[in-house]
């Protein structure tokens, strides 16, 4: 683990929170202690030598933190183990928080510094949020999605499963693939098939309608289809009904269809968890880049008028 060695997620999250708080209060207390001994004034002023030194340290840390970006682009070059980079990235990021607070004199200053500081705090917060998510969500994913796949391929695999389901329906009902409306029944769009399958009559038309309207869209698009099959209970209920109506020979195929629904439900969870696992980066990365730009502007401006 990058922070804490405990196998308990709660302990690791608490470690992150307490480490951040502890380091922040510790460093601030240390600076306060220095002020007590007369080494610098309190609250430190940003333009004082101590304040500028803190700013320089933070600037160096931020540049190091941003160096992780080119390091990713050059990952084929083996510039050290990534875990080491990540550990330094996280720890230095946490350490930079109290130093920035000291550098700012616990105030926001002019609009530029205020924006820079606000962005900095947002970057730190998003980073910590992301790190906490990374402790918590992988374990949830492990428990909730036993049949995991690559999140980016969920829709592709879902379409593949929809094709399989369509073939199963064709074999069960005898309808041509994609032409379930040939079956006639209570549903006006479903005529009786010319070559009936294992399931016939009203049940066939029900099954066909179910597949066309609910099952296949759900397998293709998951939750986005707004299908009632999103709920496991609903899936179980509907397939239990079909099993009651259909002959014994159709049960294995129906079980397979139910399994496909279950897989899709798991993968919806996977997509959702994956989103929460990585969405923090959408905030963290652009804010970091913007903050670094503003920090450089602030540094140039401050040094010019110092």
């Amino acid at each position: 683990m990058l922070i804490g060695n405990s196998s308990s997620v709660t302990n690791r999250v608490l470690t992150i929170v307490f480490a951040t708080a502890g380091i922040t209060f510790g460093v601030v207390a240390l600076a306060g202690a220095g002020a007590l001994f007369g080494l610098w004034e309190w609250p430190p002023r940003p333009w004082s030598p101590f304040g500028v030194a803190c700013g320089a340290v933070v600037g160096a840390i931020v540049f190091f933190e941003m160096a992780i970006l080119p390091r990713k682009w050059l990952r084929g070059r083996r510039l050290g183990a990534t875990v080491l980079w990540m550990q330094f990235h996280i720890w230095l990021g946490i350490v930079s928080l109290p130093i920035v607070l000291i550098h700012s004199g616990f105030g926001f200053g002019n609009p530029l510094t205020a924006i820079t500081l606000a962005l900095f705090l947002a970057v730190i917060a998003s980073g910590l949020w992301g790190h906490i998510m990374q402790q918590w969500l992988p374990r949830r994913m492990l428990a909730e999605v036993p049949n995991e796949t690559i999140a980016a391929r969920v829709d592709f695999t879902g379409s593949y499963h929809a094709g399989e389901a369509a073939r199963i329906i064709v074999e069960l009902t005898g309808a041509d693939e994609g032409h379930c409306d040939e079956i006639e029944s209570d549903h006006p769009e479903c005529p009786v098939p010319t070559n009936p399958g294992v399931v016939t009559g009203h049940t066939a038309s029900e099954l066909c309608w179910f597949a066309e309207k609910l099952l296949l869209p759900y397998l293709r698009s998951g939750r986005r289809s707004r299908s009632p099959l999103t709920a496991r209970v609903e899936v179980e209920r509907r397939f239990a009904e079909f099993r009651e109506l259909a002959p014994e020979a159709a049960h294995p195929a129906l079980r397979r269809l139910e399994t496909l629904c279950e897989l899709r439900r798991q993968w919806d969870s996977l997509v959702r968890l994956n989103y929460w696992l990585h969405n923090w980066l959408v905030i963290h990365l652009p804010l970091s880049v913007t903050m670094t730009g503003l920090m450089m502007l602030h540094a140039v401006r401050a040094l010019k008028y110092w």
């Binding site: 990952r75 990534t82 992988p138 990585h278």
Partner: peptide
């Protein structure tokens, strides 16, 4: 180790 893998594909 799926307990700590964040599926980042690095």
């Amino acid at each position: 180790d799926l307990n700590s893998c964040t599926r980042c594909d690095e």
